[in-house]
Structure formats: C-alpha cells, structure tokens
C-alpha cells in the first residue's frame, strides 16, 4: 500500500522510519496547548507512526531554559526509544552556556542545540551565540534555529560560510515565501544546510514546490508538536504528490543521516 493510501485511511506509517526533527514539550503561556507532556506526545506519535521526536521545551525558548532542559532530560531518560533532546540556550545568560552544553551533551539522547532568536530578542548572529556555533562546529551536531523570513535566512548564510562542520536546520523552512526561496537555494549550495517543515499555516502545494525546487534530501519532517497538532504537517507530506522514496527521505532518512554524523 502506498504512503498516500495509508494516510487516506488514517493508518500509522509504522513500516517506515519517521523522526520528527522539530518538537517542543510542556505548557505555553499564550494559548491552550493540551496534552503537552511526554505521554501526550507519545499518543500523538503512535497515532501517526512517528518513531522518535527531537525535543526542545517551550519553557526553554521563553523564560527558563534550565527548567525546560530538565523537562526534556526527564523525557529522554524515561522514554529513550522515543525522545531525543536539543539543548536550548538563552544568550542573555552567557555565563551558563558552556556548562549547559557540557552537562546536557553528557546525557545520552541529547543530540543537538536549539536556538530561538525571535523569542529571545536577538539576531541569529548575536555574539553570545558564538559558543553554541563553535560547539556545533567542533562536534558536527545539528543546530535547529527558528528562522522566520528572508532576513533570518540571509543571516544563516553567513553562519553556513563560517561554521562548515555544524549542521544548520532552518526551522519553518524560512517561513514566508521569500525566506523559503532563499532557503531552497542554500540547501542546494551548502552541504550543511537543511530546512524543516514545521508551519502552522502552510500553503497549498508547499511540499511539492519545495521538493521540485530543492529535492528531497535536505528537507526534514518537523511538526512543532505540541505547540500545535502534528497531523496537518504529517498529512502535507504523507499525501503530497511526490514519490514514496521522497517521502521516506523527508520523514526520517535525512534526519537519521544527520544524527549518524
């Protein structure tokens, strides 16, 4: 049965690898996000056939990264087969950054770094982020950055030139149309550039357009769960008018390759 046929029937894609490269966890101040704990997320993952989710906590991208990173660590320890962790850093606490990286990368299951320049009110190339970028460059780990619009994508281009060993995931694929157009160029031009699919209001035909212009090898399934529900992003890929091989790349094989170094 094709992936489209399974998705039309609401069947979990349990025969292919699915890694959600962009998820959160916990409460959110600005709106109701039900069932936001590890168990609630696992129920959603099982419904769809998501094998693993890479997590950054909501708390970490807003007031308290210590609380958030601990929340993720607890989930990774409790469900090592289902969750991987991003260490999330806040550049307003520069004195903590190196220690936070060391402490959490010592925990099995922490695989990358998450930065949210918009929530933390700084540019992507803010000087205090250099600790994180150097760490990623030294280790080759992925850095998931909230990338929203053309200006952000242009700044990422500078990072790609400077830190060639770090793997940069442009969250939300650049978000708006102009951002996405440049992001597509960057994933073609730079070996270490990727985009993810997390968008609350993606446009008709968006996945097909991304694959047609950027290929399937540098696009990662990211849902933003439980910031919002994963099912619509999942459906956008599962029933997209692209081949099943391309869907397998996006759903899991590309992220697997990143994680394997």
């Amino acid at each position: 049965m094709t992936i489209t046929c399974k998705a039309r029937q609401g069947l979990a894609l349990d025969d292919i690898l699915v890694i959600d490269a962009h998820t959160h966890m916990g409460l959110w101040h600005n709106f109701h996000a039900p069932n936001n704990d590890a168990e609630g997320m696992i129920r959603s993952m099982d419904t769809l056939g998501i094998d693993k989710a890479v997590v950054t906590a909501h708390s970490s991208i807003l007031p308290n990264y210590r609380y958030g990173n601990d929340l993720v660590a607890n989930a990774v320890k409790a469900y090592p087969d289902r969750f991987l962790g991003y260490v999330t850093l806040n550049p307003h606490y520069p004195e903590d950054m190196e220690l936070e990286l060391k402490n959490f990368f010592d925990i099995p299951g922490f695989v990358g770094i998450k930065l949210h320049p918009s929530c933390h009110g700084v540019p992507i190339d803010y000087k205090n982020y250099e600790v994180a970028y150097r760490f990623a460059d030294d280790t080759g780990c992925p850095v998931l950055i909230h990338v929203w619009g053309l200006g952000h994508v242009l700044t990422v281009k500078g990072l790609l030139d400077k830190y060639k060993n770090a793997k940069f995931i442009m969250g939300h694929g650049g978000a708006d149309l102009e951002g996405m157009k440049l992001a597509i160029d960057l994933i073609g031009d730079y070996e270490n550039a990727y985009i993810d699919t997390a968008l609350s209001t993606a446009m008709q035909g968006n996945i097909e357009w991304l694959v047609e212009n950027g290929g399937s090898k540098k696009i990662l399934f990211g849902s933003d769960m439980p910031f919002y529900d994963p099912r619509h992003t999942f459906g956008r890929i599962a029933m997209a008018k692209i081949s099943d091989d391309e869907k397998r790349d996006i759903f899991g094989l590309n992220m697997k390759k990143i994680l394997e170094g």
Binding site: A7, G10, Q204, N206, R231, R236
Partner: peptide, 18 residues
C-alpha cells in the same frame, strides 16, 4: 481551505483524529 491551504492537511486532521 483550498486552494489557499492544503486539502491533504485538512483531511489528515480528521482521518488521524483519535
């Protein structure tokens, strides 16, 4: 929401609902 938004996203919300 077609053709602004993807129909496949909207159907998946129902097909996969618990």
């Amino acid at each position: 929401g077609m053709p602004i938004y993807p129909g496949i996203a909207a159907t998946a919300m129902i097909s996969y609902a618990n």
